[in-house]
Design a protein around this nucleic acid. Structure first.
Lengths: 123, 123
DNA sequence: GTCGGACCTGACGCTGACGTCAGGGTCAAG
DNA sequence: CTTGACCCTGACGTCAGCGTCAGGTCCGAC
């Protein structure tokens, strides 16, 4: 596949793919004229990269973790890092859940207010 | 309270508090000599700001939402925005949960691998 | 009166994940 | 053999949430 096809299939920009390669996150073959050619698995890899980036992992951490994600082979250190990042994400989920719940409370409070005291309710 | 006390109590830097004020997120009185004086509620407000920042809201969105968070009074538009942000966070929670689960699968796979095929298991 | 610590206002620096522009090859189609 | 869509390599721009340094003020203690 060419870079534009991969970008379209993965829902990212061409620039992002080149950036990933620059960061060592994504490999590509080159055609004789120098254009990038990607294997099929590239789209899946890009999905993983996006998942981990959106989870707040910096690209350097992803560089270290991606190999074992794809191969299933990991040194004890990689397992430790993977576990650590997993726990960070878990913690993040708990904090975000709490934030969401507090926002729900605020919403409930505003609803109570408009239901009882606001002139907007009668307007 | 002075800025250093608020910073310590809220667990943020003095610079962060000045930045919040600059962004319209946090108000302060001034002493005759120009030093900031904060009311007690400031610490709670800073906690809210931190929650929302860590939830990915930009400061401008927080500027719009903080008033109704504190007063419980909200225009229909504010309720709509609050709801929208709540939903975004909820979506984020679901994505992060999925990511965490996929990482768990990877971890399980690496454990299976090291249990069966790796020479590191015997080393 | 002076000393150290906390405070002030600029204002530039930093980081990460790209966006974007400049200037120039590549390639299938007509 | 030219057009147009796609691709290439730099390299600078961007944005947010601060960190940090410079140069000066304020204040309680001694």
């Amino acid at each position: 596949m060419r870079i534009g096809e991969v970008a379209a299939a993965a829902g990212v920009s061409v620039r992002a793919l080149r950036y990933y390669e620059e960061q060592g996150l994504l490999e590509s073959e080159r055609s004789p004229s120098g254009q990038r050619r990607y294997a099929e698995g590239a789209v899946g890899r890009v999905h993983w990269i996006q998942l981990l980036l959106r989870a707040g992992l910096p690209s350097r951490a992803i560089v270290d973790l991606l190999p074992c994600v794809h191969t299933g082979v990991a040194t004890p250190e990689m397992v430790a890092r993977l576990t650590a990042e997993r726990d960070r994400i878990d913690q993040q989920v708990r904090e975000l859940t709490a934030t969401r719940d507090r926002m729900d409370e605020v919403l409930a409070a505003t609803l109570r207010y408009t239901a009882t005291g606001s002139c907007a309710a009668a307007g």
